[in-house]
């Protein structure tokens, strides 16, 4: 993550590339499925894991953090201010949170698809999202535990 979006200083050229092998990024198109099945926290975990694997593009980390913050804020606002009759069934709560997470995944897809393409290795393959399945499951359980008190308090 060092020198993520800082241009080199003028004057003599200095090395910017590290010799360590880097992992190919996850396919940003798969964010949608992570958001749909795993929820907003899983989306955040995967997007942050991917951020270090993407091309170095000006303001990309800031845009990513902003989208994740907005998604989290929208999810909390939904849990706090959604009408009582909507919160009456957990199905509606799950649907509402999914809609918010999917909206976040669409924004992240738009910001990450170019930088992910630029970070592909010579074989042109993305890293399979299945490799993050443990993190996705853990994050979706965490989301369930965080949401449960809100739902119990309002039903």
């Amino acid at each position: 993550m060092e020198q993520f979006d800082s241009p080199p200083p003028p004057g003599p050229f200095a090395p910017r590339l590290s010799s360590g092998s880097q992992t190919a990024p996850f396919r940003p198109g798969a964010y949608f499925y992570v958001a749909f099945f795993g929820g907003a926290i899983a989306l955040g975990v995967v997007a942050l894991m991917n951020l270090g694997r993407l091309s170095k593009v000006t303001n990309l980390p800031q845009k990513t953090y902003a989208v994740l913050a907005l998604t989290a804020a929208a999810a909390v606002a939904f849990l706090l201010v959604a009408p009582e009759d909507l919160m009456a069934t957990t199905r509606n709560v799950r649907l509402g949170l999914r809609m918010i997470a999917v909206a976040g995944s669409i924004a992240l897809y738009r910001f990450h698809k170019g930088p992910a393409l630029g970070a592909l290795k010579s074989d042109g393959e993305y890293t399979s999202m299945w490799k993050a399945i443990g993190w996705i499951i853990a994050a979706s359980i965490a989301q369930g535990l965080l949401v449960a008190p809100f739902v119990l308090a309002r039903t």
Partner: peptide, 10 residues
């Protein structure tokens, strides 16, 4: 080289 290495800023 920098672009192919994913360093658009560079």
């Amino acid at each position: 080289l920098l672009a192919h290495s994913g360093d658009a800023v560079g």
